[in-house]
Every structure is written in structure tokens, then in C-alpha cells.
Design a protein around this nucleic acid. Structure first.
Length: 275
DNA sequence: CCGTCGTGTCGTCATAGGCA
DNA sequence: TGCCTATGACGACACGACGG
């Protein structure tokens, strides 16, 4: 295992350099709030097209694919036991990557309101209705992030109000990549309904066996409803997280490209000087 | 046209983890 | 400690692509 010293690095970068078309490998280093620097590097070998790096303190560990897989297998099993929430991961990501332009921190309100924010940012059909569940009905293409979208809402008890929290907004570029602009974030806040959704009636029909049965059934219905919505929200956050990662990949690839070019020109300069 | 396959979405269950 | 929430896992279903 090679050791590469550096100042600050982001968490466990995985860098696929297989398609660089060049015979060297570069470690990605994203330094929060600073220009990106690559201090290290350069493996003049044709072999490991995939290099994985992790870091401990101020040290980056560069491992081969095999080493990585071995370690990752153990880690994955641990992860399967319990992963941190996507909100946590996103927040860690965004705090890690202050250097990456446009990464916006997600707050509790943010994750609740992203759909509305995206909707508002689209500038199309802002249909905000007091609501409980939120669905994005995409028009035509089935992709909820493009085209005109309508917020279809049902039930009662939810308050939407402009102003307040910032939300993470993704814009899909023409090349299919997603970006999170730091500016141009819309703000809507959704309060979790404190009242029961329509159709769920609070009863206290205790006392008779039938009443107990009804109560249990009602509780189950309520639990299922809440869980249904929680699952939906969770999936939305998961997608958000994935898009965030995709965005991160795009940024890092861009940085990598720039650094490669810089390295190339510096090499040329050095060779000229030497000659 | 029909069967198959891959993919996406949704509802539900189980459970870890947070909180009062 | 019990309740609640978030999320992984799983099955069911829908839908489009593709080949025969």
C-alpha cells in the first residue's frame, strides 16, 4: 500500500481512471473551501486502472482494487446492518466538500420541501394545495426532474409557505448530469401535519371486544399510512442522495481533467527547461 | 402478437436508533 | 422503556424493449 501525504481530503474517494487514456493515475483530493490541490500521485504503471483511496487524519491510503474489495466486503456487511440516514450522509458530504461549487447543506425542512422547491424553480405550474402526501406527476417523459410538473396533493393538514428554509435543488443539464446550484434555491417549508389525515378518524371505541378490534385496526391503518409516506419520503431522499453523488462525480471528473491538463503542461515545461 | 427480461415504483414488514 | 421514525429488504405490479 502506498502512502500519500496530504492536508485535507474528502472521505474515501474512489477514482476510476480507466478511461483517462493515459498511463498514470491521479488521486482526487477535494479540499473544502480551497482550490483543489494534488500533492501526490502518479503511478507510472499500466496495471491498476482502478485505484481506491481512503484517508486517516492527514494521510491518504492508496490501495489496489483487490485490497479495496477485501476491505469493502467487511465494510459492506457492517453497512448493511445499519446505514446512517441519507440526510446525515448528505450533510456530511456537503460539509466535506465545501470546495465543490454549489453543494448545499440539507436541513430537516429542506428534505421535506425539495419537491416543492424544484417545482417552484421550474417556474411552471406552481400548484400548491394544502396537502399531506405529495406526488410529482411528470408530464410525458416520466422523468420527474424535467419538463412541466404538477404537484398533486391530497388530504389536509399541511401548510406550505414561501420563505424559511433553503432546499436542495437539482437542475439537469443537457448532458444528463445534475447540478446543485448554491444560488437560485427556492424556499418552501412544509410542516408535518399535526392533525390526522382525512379518512383517519380518531375514535375511542374502547370497552367492547369489537371496539378493541376497531381500535387495533385503526391503529394499524394509521401506522401503515405513516409508514407508506415515510417510505416514499425515504425513497425521495435516496434519489436525492444519488443525484448528489452523481453531481459530485461530475465535479471530481472535471477537476481531474483540469489537473491532468495542468500536469501535462507542467511536464512539458519541465522537459523544455531540461533540454 | 406474445413471452421474457430489465427496470422502476409502491406497499409492507422488520428493526435500528433517537427521543421523551 | 416504550413509542416513533427512517430505512433496508422483499414481493407485487406496471411498463417498455426486444427477440421469436
Amino acid at each position: 500500500m502506498d502512502m500519500v501525504n496530504d492536508s485535507e481530503v474528502t472521505q474515501g474517494q474512489q477514482t476510476d481512471l480507466g478511461d483517462t487514456g493515459q498511463n498514470i493515475s491521479v488521486v482526487h483530493v477535494a479540499i473544502p473551501n480551497q482550490a483543489v490541490q494534488v500533492q501526490s500521485v502518479i503511478q507510472p504503471t499500466s496495471q491498476p486502472s482502478v485505484i481506491h483511496t481512503t484517508h486517516q487524519g492527514n494521510t491518504i491510503h492508496v490501495v489496489t482494487e483487490d485490497e479495496f474489495e477485501e476491505a469493502e466486503g467487511k465494510k459492506r456487511r457492517e453497512i448493511l446492518n445499519r446505514r446512517p440516514s441519507y440526510r446525515k450522509i448528505l450533510n456530511e458530504l456537503s460539509s466535506d466538500t465545501g470546495g465543490i461549487s454549489g453543494m448545499t447543506k440539507i436541513t430537516e425542512e429542506d428534505s421535506n420541501s425539495s419537491q416543492e422547491g424544484m417545482e417552484a424553480a421550474d417556474g411552471a405550474s406552481n400548484l400548491i394545495v394544502p396537502t399531506h402526501t405529495i406526488q410529482i406527476a411528470s408530464h410525458g417523459d416520466g422523468i420527474p426532474h424535467t419538463g412541466v410538473q404538477t404537484l398533486t396533493m391530497s388530504n389536509t393538514g399541511l401548510v406550505t409557505s414561501p420563505g424559511g428554509a433553503t432546499i436542495v435543488q437539482y437542475a439537469q443539464g443537457p448532458d444528463g448530469q445534475f447540478f446543485i446550484p448554491a444560488t437560485n434555491v427556492q424556499a418552501y417549508q412544509i410542516a408535518t401535519p399535526t392533525s390526522l389525515p382525512q379518512g383517519v378518524v380518531m375514535t375511542t371505541a374502547m370497552g367492547s371486544p369489537q371496539g378493541v378490534g376497531e381500535e387495533a385496526s385503526r391503529k394499524r391503518e394509521l401506522r401503515l399510512l405513516k409508514n407508506r409516506e415515510a417510505a416514499s419520503e425515504c425513497r425521495r431522499k435516496k434519489k436525492e442522495y444519488i443525484k448528489c453523488l452523481e453531481n459530485r462525480v461530475a465535479v471530481l471528473e472535471n477537476q481531474n481533467k483540469t489537473l491532468m491538463e495542468e500536469l501535462k503542461s507542467l511536464k512539458e515545461l519541465y522537459c523544455q527547461k531540461d533540454a
